[in-house]
């Protein structure tokens, strides 16, 4: 008898197999079959949903309330939609302090205001103590379609723009648990990516926010759907000092660490410089960089390759297991 393991939810291969093997065939809907961040419905409406669980609820740079808004907002933005409306559903554990709930509601309100979205419907359920962990949130988002990502137009020579440093969210949450005796100034990058919306008009072909599974997982999935390999350069990938330090100390690869306010953009070579400049003008995009390209010089179709600092090449796989600190 097989049982659901934590890995199924870690955003890696197991989850993709679950979606492709169980969810897609169960409904056979062309809109669902695209498995994009949001579905573009008839009438120029985009629709998405996401659930949020995080321990601890509050961490440097954010909390579960801010995550629940920004995560759904970002799913709409990278699918080519301007976020407009959100639903907000809570599953609360009996015994939760109301002050905690108030704090979370306050941060949902602030985040929604910042992102310019209205919370217009919702639901609340309470489960017995021990049957849930304090607060779970689900949000659905509705937006106005401004562009359709065009994977079919991605060409050899197209550039990959990463909008900032990797792994800050992952690390902030890990350290907020007080584990591993590590302290640093790291803060979650949890933020709305609305400033990327105008990039669609300026020539961006495709975007994806870098969440669970990290950059390597996002780009492996991209590479699998393209006719030519994707190459990124280790030296060009921006990292904050706390993330560099933690990755050395705990042996965790930043390429697989989650963000909550970063995206990767595919841009035509001719427009890449202009798009990069636009991203960098925004405070959230100051450390953006061109980190690689879709190319035909090395590798085979479907592959994601990394040019290492030492000059070697290595194949990157999607995340296959939960990130664990290791000593060896």
């Amino acid at each position: 008898m097989t049982k659901v393991s934590l890995e199924l939810g870690s955003g890696g291969r197991l989850m993709r197999e679950f979606l492709a093997g169980k969810i897609v065939p169960a409904f056979r809907d062309p809109l669902l079959g695209e498995l994009s961040d949001a579905a573009h419905l008839p009438g120029g409406i985009a629709f998405t949903t996401d659930s949020y669980v995080v321990d601890p609820l509050v961490f440097p740079g954010g909390d579960i309330g801010a995550l629940a808004v920004n995560g759904t907002v970002n799913d709409l933005v990278v699918a080519g939609a301007e976020p407009r409306f959100l639903s907000l559903a809570f599953i609360l554990e009996e015994g939760l302090e109301t002050a905690t709930l108030d704090r979370v509601i306050g941060s949902v309100r602030n985040a929604a205001r910042r992102a310019g979205v209205r919370v217009v419907t919702g639901d609340t359920k309470v489960v017995r103590r021990g049957q849930g962990d304090k607060i779970y949130i689900n949000t659905a988002g509705v937006g106005r379609t401004v562009a359709r990502p065009r994977l079919d137009r991605v060409r050899k020579g197209d550039k990959l723009i990463l909008t900032g440093t990797l792994g800050d969210h992952s690390l902030a949450v890990m350290l907020a648990r007080g584990e591993f005796g590590l302290r640093s100034s790291v803060r979650s990058d949890c933020a709305p990516l609305l400033f990327l919306l105008p990039l669609w008009r300026a020539g961006a072909r495709w975007m994806r926010d870098v969440t669970r599974g990290g950059l390597a997982t996002v780009l492996s999935e991209l590479a699998e759907r393209l006719p030519c390999p994707v190459l990124i350069e280790e030296d060009k990938v921006p990292l904050s000092r706390p993330v560099r330090a933690a990755s050395d100390l705990l042996g965790i690869d930043p390429l697989y660490m989650a963000c909550e306010g970063k995206a990767v953009i595919v841009a035509p070579a001719a427009k890449a410089a202009a798009l990069l400049a636009r991203v960098r003008r925004h405070p959230l995009g100051r450390r953006a960089a061109v980190i690689g390209e879709v190319q035909g010089r090395v590798g085979r179709p479907g592959e994601l390759l990394l040019r290492t600092s030492a000059g070697g090449l290595r194949l990157l796989e999607p995340l296959t297991s939960e990130l664990l600190p290791r000593i060896c």
Partner: peptide
């Protein structure tokens, strides 16, 4: 055996202390 070089910032009683590695502090 993953290990990193870090600079000692503090030594306390009982062999405990903290070291700094790239701006992060590790106990």
């Amino acid at each position: 055996c993953l290990a990193v070089p870090a600079k000692i910032v503090r030594l306390e009683a009982g062999g405990q202390g903290a070291a700094s590695y790239m701006g992060s502090e590790v106990r």
